[in-house]
Amino acid sequence: MYDFAYQKPSNVADAVAALGADPEAKAVAGGMTLIPVLKQRLNRPSVVVDLAKTGLAGITAGAGSITIGAMTTHAAVAHSADVQRVIPALAALAGLIGDEQVRHRGTIGGSLANNDPAADYPAAALALGATITTTKRAIKADDFFQGMFTTALEPDELITKVEFPAATKANYQKFRNPASRYAIVGVFVAQTAAGVRVAVTGAGQGGVFRHTAMEAALSKNFSADAIADVVTPADDLNGDIHASSEYRAHLIGVMARRAVAAAA
């Protein structure tokens, strides 16, 4: 790891100012992505701005929605009685991220900002139609994710909270990479008043995406059978030593059917 300066501002405004003051500055939330990257010497920030004291953690249950502060850990979401009650699929998803030790540190803000193509939260955000509130604006999930490791965030813009509308029924099915345990394919299915949304993570070359063919079929008939014949083209999917694009295409179907069948 290269050395860097370290700041721990006590409010969001100071954090934004610190990030704005130096283009090479980098925020750290749980550090579960940033620190491994720094250890591999793949990134060289001048200043690391620690968000731990910015007061962005916390979960509130509203009428028909859950709002999660950016610094809320995966473990807090997984164990939250509110999340379990309002959007059980979201709590279950948080419990599938990494391992317990990672979940004790890693945050929802960090996960969404990072937009790893194999991360889990992006699937939930996209399928549930979450709204991501930042220090500058509110961004719809549909506009937030802009390709692998790329989001709508500007360099000095921080996620402050994420609001997830509750779904009538939802479920997330993850097929883990056997080595890293990230998603090879993760499918989040949500049935809402506005229709059915299906988001796929782990598979797309451009990161998380919505599966419109499945959405159309499920909007007519919310059952696993309805998507049994929906073919997912392998063309734009990732292939690597763990799974070919064809296998990923196939798994999207399997995970989607299982998610629909299990949706609650």
Partner: peptide, 23 residues
């Protein structure tokens, strides 16, 4: 060096964490 093995786990304010993945 990839935060995978857990040989470094300690308790931080009561919760288990990987001390290799924390400054």
């Amino acid at each position: 060096d990839t935060s995978q093995c857990g040989a470094c786990v300690v308790h931080l304010d009561g919760a288990s964490v990987k001390s290799c993945t924390m400054l």
